[in-house]
Simulated scan of single mutants.
Amino acid sequence: MAVVNRESLSDQAARLLLARIEDGEWTVGQKLPGETTLAPQLGVGRSTVREAIRQLAGQGVLASRQGAGVFLLARAPVDDWESRILKANIASILEARLAIESEASSLAAQRHTHEDLEAIRVALARRRADRVSIAARVDADTAFHRSIVAAGRNEILVELFDTFAERSRDAMIQMLEFNGEAPTARDDAVHEDIVDAITKRDATSASELSRAHLLALRDGALQEELRDGRADADSG
């Protein structure tokens, strides 16, 4: 069994897995072995296998079904906008969110109506309450940030946010599952500060707070990727 090199572990793992698929090791519709089986076969850690599977799911080759496993959908990848997002690492996804949301927060501070502000506050309250699962946390957080983008009254930014949020949802869930971090008072305070800046029509602060929040998430994701790469190298 071939083992990946240290460079671009998840990309190489995805290529090795795709080669096995193209060789007919599994039939369309068949369930693939679990991460604990594939990881030693590919010579990488489980998290790298998970990322490789996510890449191939983004290409329409695999499908992850919650509670059931990973299944083969097709033998060849289909590359499109959705797959490019799903193949991106979480840091790249957060950087794209940063570009959308920092500007949207500034516009929301300048343009919001009373009704917009009420919608933002309701979404903030739901964000604090909807924590029964990681998926619920992601959905509530997305709804909160969308309320801010909508208050900016720029249809293009809203469309970009909706398209991007829908296609990056699984990646955000995977990031939280991997980190295993519960919501913190500091995280709540950051979001409250963003709402406060929007309420005061302080466009500069709203933008800077949104940017700082997403940069912190991005930096945390980069550190996780670095630690994961070191762990894979040590196990290789």
Score class of each variant (00 low, 15 high):
R131C: 07
A108D: 11
I100P: 12
E192A: 13
R111G: 11
I194N: 04
F178A: 13
K200S: 13
S133R: 14
E166V: 12
I148F: 11
A182W: 02
A136D: 10
E155W: 01
L157Y: 10
M175T: 04
V149P: 15
A109N: 13
A151R: 03
H145R: 01
F164P: 09
L117T: 08
L160P: 13
R121T: 06
E159V: 00
R169P: 09
I156E: 07
S106N: 14
R153F: 02
D130I: 00
V138S: 03
A104N: 15
A91M: 02
A150Q: 05
E82C: 14
A119W: 05
E181I: 05
I198R: 03
M172R: 14
T199I: 03
A197I: 14
L94F: 03
L176T: 03
R131I: 05
W81N: 08
P77N: 11
A150L: 07
D80S: 13
A182V: 10
D187K: 08
L157S: 15
D80M: 08
A171E: 02
N89K: 11
R128I: 05
E192P: 03
A96V: 15
K200P: 09
E82L: 13
V138N: 03
I194T: 10
H114L: 12
R153L: 00
R84E: 14
E177W: 00
I134K: 04
P183W: 00
L86Q: 15
V195M: 06
Q110K: 09
V190D: 04
R137S: 05
L117S: 10
R131H: 08
R131E: 08
E166Y: 05
I90K: 05
A140S: 10
R167S: 13
F144Q: 07
R131Y: 03
A108Q: 13
A197S: 15
R131T: 08
Q174D: 15
D193Q: 13
I93Q: 01
F164C: 01
T113L: 12
D141R: 02
S92Q: 14
P77V: 12
F161E: 06
L157M: 12
E159S: 15
S83F: 05
D130T: 02
N89C: 13
E166Q: 13
W81P: 06
D141V: 06
A165Y: 05
T184W: 01
R167H: 14
I194F: 03
E192Y: 03
I85V: 15
K200G: 04
F144L: 03
I85M: 10
T142D: 01
A129G: 06
V195N: 05
H112K: 12
S133F: 08
F161R: 08
H191S: 11
H114G: 13
R167Q: 14
